[in-house]
Design a protein around this nucleic acid. Structure first.
Lengths: 146, 146
DNA sequence: CTAGATGCAAAGAGTTTGCACGAAG
DNA sequence: CTTCGTGCAAACTCTTTGCATCTAG
C-alpha cells in the first residue's frame, strides 16, 4: 500500500524527508494524525495538542498553516465532509471513502470503492440506515474546448 | 417524478400550498431556483436578486432564513459541495448526484446512481478526467446499541 | 389587528493574511 | 547568520441570532 512506506517512519523522519524543518508543533501534529484513525478537523488537532500539554502555547493558525503545507507535500490529505469543515488525515491515502455516524460523528474509512466493485455496505462496517453523498469532479465539455 | 407536481405550479402557488406567506423575496427566490438548473449558494441567489433589480433592498440574511424554511418544508433541498458552502436547489429532488466542473464550476445533476446501476459517466455528461467523492452516513454499531 | 417576515446590526465558526520576533539548520 | 516558522492581531467568508419595524392575511 502507498502508506506502508510512510507509516513506518517517525514524524521527524517524515518531516526531514519532505524537506521541512523539524519543529515541535509539526512533530506533534504528525504524531496525532498517525496515532488516530480518522480524518480530523484543524480544531480537533489543535485541541488534542493543547490537552496533551505537549506544547505550552500553540496557535490554531500554525496548525492551519502546517496542515496546508503537509497537504501540498502529500504528507497529509484533506477531505470535506458534510459538516462543511476541512478534515485532515495522514498519508497520501489510496482511493477510499468515509462512513460518518450521524449520531456520534465517528468516521470510518472504507477502501473498497463501491463504484468499482459493488459492496454490501451495511455488512461491511456495521452501520445501518445508510445514505450517501456522491459528487463527481471533472472538466465539462465547454472547458475542454478552451 | 416527484418534482413534476411541483414544477407546474407558480412560486406563489407553491408558497401558499406550503403554508408560507407570499412575499416578494420568497417569490423571487423560488423563481430563481425554478428557472435555474443547478444548486446555488445563498450568495449566488442573493446576487441574482439584486442584479435583476426585482427587489430594491434585500438582505442576505432574509435569503438564508427563507432557504432554511424552504428546506424544512421540503420545497428546496440543500447539498454541501467541495467548496464547503451550502448549495440549494429547487424541489424535493429524487436521489441524484452532482457533477462539478473543476474549471468553470458548472454543476450538472445526474439522476442515475452509479451505486445502483453502473454508468459510463464520461459518456453520459461529456465530462472528462472525472474523480469522485463519496461519503456514507448512517448509524455506527455503538450508536445502534444506545 | 396580529402573527410572522424583513432589514439592520452584530456575533460566531472556520479559515486566511500581515507582520515582527524567534528558532532550526 | 539566514531562512523559515511561530504567535499574535486582524481580516474575511459563510452563516446565525437579536431586535425593532413592517406587512400579509
Amino acid at each position: 500500500l502507498i502508506n506502508s512506506k510512510l507509516q513506518v517512519q517517525s514524524p521527524p523522519q517524515l518531516l526531514q524527508e519532505s524537506g521541512f524543518k523539524v519543529t515541535k508543533i509539526r512533530v506533534a501534529i504528525l504524531e496525532f494524525l498517525t496515532e488516530g484513525h480518522g480524518p480530523y478537523t484543524a480544531q480537533q488537532i489543535f485541541q488534542s495538542l493543547q490537552d496533551k500539554g505537549r506544547l505550552k502555547s500553540i496557535d490554531l493558525v500554525s496548525v492551519y498553516r502546517n496542515l496546508e503545507k503537509f497537504v501540498e507535500s502529500g504528507l497529509v490529505s484533506r477531505c470535506q465532509l458534510a459538516d462543511g469543515a476541512s478534515h485532515f488525515e495522514f498519508g497520501q491515502t489510496p482511493h477510499h471513502h468515509h462512513i460518518v455516524c450521524t449520531s456520534c460523528n465517528r468516521i470510518d474509512s472504507m477502501f473498497n470503492c463501491p463504484l468499482q466493485v459493488p459492496v454490501k455496505m451495511e455488512v461491511a462496517k456495521g452501520y445501518t440506515g445508510l445514505s450517501h453523498k456522491l459528487e463527481f469532479y471533472g472538466l465539462c465539455s465547454n472547458c475542454q474546448s478552451n
